[in-house]
Nucleic acid binder design. Sequence first.
DNA 1: TGAAATGTTGGGGCG
DNA 2: ACGCCCCAACATTTC
Length: 477
Amino acid sequence: MPGKPTLVWFRNDLRLADNPALHAASLQDSPVLPVFIWDGGRPNLPGSASRWWLYHSLKHLAESLAAKGSSLVVQSGETLEALCRLAEQTGASRLYFNRGYEPEDRLLESRIKERLAGRLEVKSFKGNLLFEPWALANKQGKPYQVFTPFWKQCLTLLRQETPLPAPDGLAAPPAWPECLPLEVLGLAPKLKWAEGFHTMWTPGEAGAAAKLAQFVQSALWSYAHNRDIPNLPGTSELSPHLHYGEISIRQVVAAVQQALAEQPHRSREDADIYLKELGWREFAYHLLHYFPHTVNAPLKEAYRAFPWRHDPEGLKAWQRGQTGYPIVDAGMRQLWRLGWMHNRVRMIAGSFLVKDLLLPWQDGAAWFWDTLVDADVANNALGWQWVAGSGADASPFFRIFNPVLQGEKFDPQGGYIRRWVPELAELPDKWIHQPWKASSAVLQQAGIILGRNYPFPIVDHDEARQSALNAYAKIRS
DNA sequence: TGAAATGTTGGGGCG
DNA sequence: ACGCCCCAACATTTC
């Protein structure tokens, strides 16, 4: 029987299908030893919501591996130490993994190769992006800072690729190393907070595949319009699955391409717009790779001098969905309940924090990091810097969302508000996005007492807009 | 992947 | 019939 085992190090690629590292390992005529290591000391440790997801995803992965006659070896501790120890204990001759793209990942991977390459074959694969950050450059040979040309190049390079199948079976090693029960990692939240997450999410590869199939069957074909309507399931809802690699980006693209090929009458325009959104994800990783400091600091130097306010009460009101602006509050409460917020509302709520409250985007990024199940270093930094106007190809600072107009435009019947801010449910459409303008009779009729069961606006948007423009003027010249 | 401020136009009321 | 004014409606500029 077989030679020495191949260690397959699982990270943000918690799937069996289209997993290049696992696939390559399964082709070797030797046992496969899947391993996951929880390093509680690493930077950018997943936030609470993300850890909830990870716990369930690992559980699912372990079951899938068991069904293939294999097992997931779970350990905790410093990653390099754990891998060395495992290599030693198991006598492994190979270490395979899919590359990660956070700055710390790059560093860790090179340390692993340095340390282990003499003793076993260390091989890494591209599993999580269409184009690795360093694979693309503009005509001057420099990293892109504008999305459109970046995406144009992506499209010229994009090929129809067939995703790899899941391995039929995985040969087990003669003995399994020590494995921690998942519960020991302390990933699941102690509060009941996350219980509602299950109403929307099924972490794991099967849940991801189901979401993709559902999306390609329906919402994809009205994506151009419906993706902006927060009260509709108009988006793919794949972000957390993609973050943990329960589905690969290549599988998603292939599914869209295949649907287009099989149903030529379908709207290519909608599909193209969706693919472009995936392009923003690629762009985020590209930027993170070349400008790693932008996780915490603005890409545009001038923004370092921006006169942000200090307002713990305002921040708290925003976090709890008590700003008095219904669309903002609805978004923040959806986030708390589902670990997710519709993208249109992320822009509105983000703009409100940064431009109406004049609070640093890093505060918003930190809250999102802890509460989003799809929290992702690259996407979070890109999204917040876009909102704040301080990033690459960002929304100009003076582009300030009006929360009332945005609400009226994208939630005209107020269904989203009524769902997430139930105390406003009885208000007529006309006032649902600006309850403070309703007459006292209307408010009474709807059972609302402003300042009691729903707050007055914590800032006046028109005044806040002027303050924001004044603040912006200070850093402009 | 905004919104407000400002500018322009053209139809209709009216002396 | 004509010029003048008003002001939607739309376009452009500015933040």
